[in-house]
Computed example of a mutant assay.
Amino acid sequence: MSGTRPVAELDAVIEQTLREGELVHEHPTPGRWLVDLPGTNKLKTVCGLIVGEHALRVEAFVCRQPDENREQLWTFLLQRNARMYAVAYSIDSVGDVYLTGRLPHAAVTPEELDRVLGAVLSYADDHFNTMLEIGFGTSIRREWEWRVKRGESLRNLEAFAAFADPTRRPGPGAPPDGGA
């Protein structure tokens, strides 16, 4: 037995799961799905589900290539891969960060799809601010300073205040925990 299932059968399982989960999605062609996963730190992660000959491919863009500290970011991501379920961090040829994985056709059930989509959302969202701090910290600090000087809103940068706001950063030689 080959373990492969027809695209129409897998599409029916995917459609049922997304409908029951009330997830916004597109189905541009048979065997191809785009699912919007709403987050907290990363407001939306678009996850692609692509039915292949033997497996369902799962792909989600996490962030663009870092401006700085590439090796530190890659280390951070690789250290998490060993503890992740169904997907892993990967990079494309230009260094953009993705979550990717494969599910054998036999494993494509509503329960397993829900688990995998939950994992994608968690991994894309939970460490998003840390990834941005590592890979884009200088740009974020520069943007913070520019907005302060101009009196612009800092609302969408508040998640980075602990490292971007010089009034909240410990001075040189200060203990990282503020001396507590």
Rank of each mutant, 00 (worst) to 15 (best):
G3I: 05
E9S: 13
L10N: 07
E20D: 06
L23H: 11
V24S: 11
P28E: 15
P28C: 12
R32K: 12
L34H: 12
V35N: 13
T40E: 15
C47Y: 12
L49R: 01
L49N: 05
V51R: 03
E53I: 00
E59L: 14
P66F: 08
D67V: 01
L78A: 08
Q79L: 13
R83D: 14
M84L: 15
A86C: 06
A86I: 00
I91Y: 07
D96P: 00
Y98F: 15
Y98P: 04
Y98G: 04
Y98H: 15
L99A: 11
T100L: 06
R102Y: 11
L103R: 03
P104N: 01
A106M: 11
V108F: 15
T109H: 05
R115V: 10
V120I: 02
A124H: 09
A124M: 06
D125L: 11
D126L: 13
H127T: 09
E133F: 03
G135E: 08
G137P: 06
I140R: 03
R142Y: 02
E143C: 04
W144Q: 08
R147K: 01
K149C: 04
E152I: 00
E158H: 10
A159G: 03
A161R: 09
A162T: 09
A164T: 02
P166Y: 05
P166I: 04
R168E: 14
A174I: 03
D177H: 03
G178V: 03
G178K: 07
A180Y: 11
A180N: 06
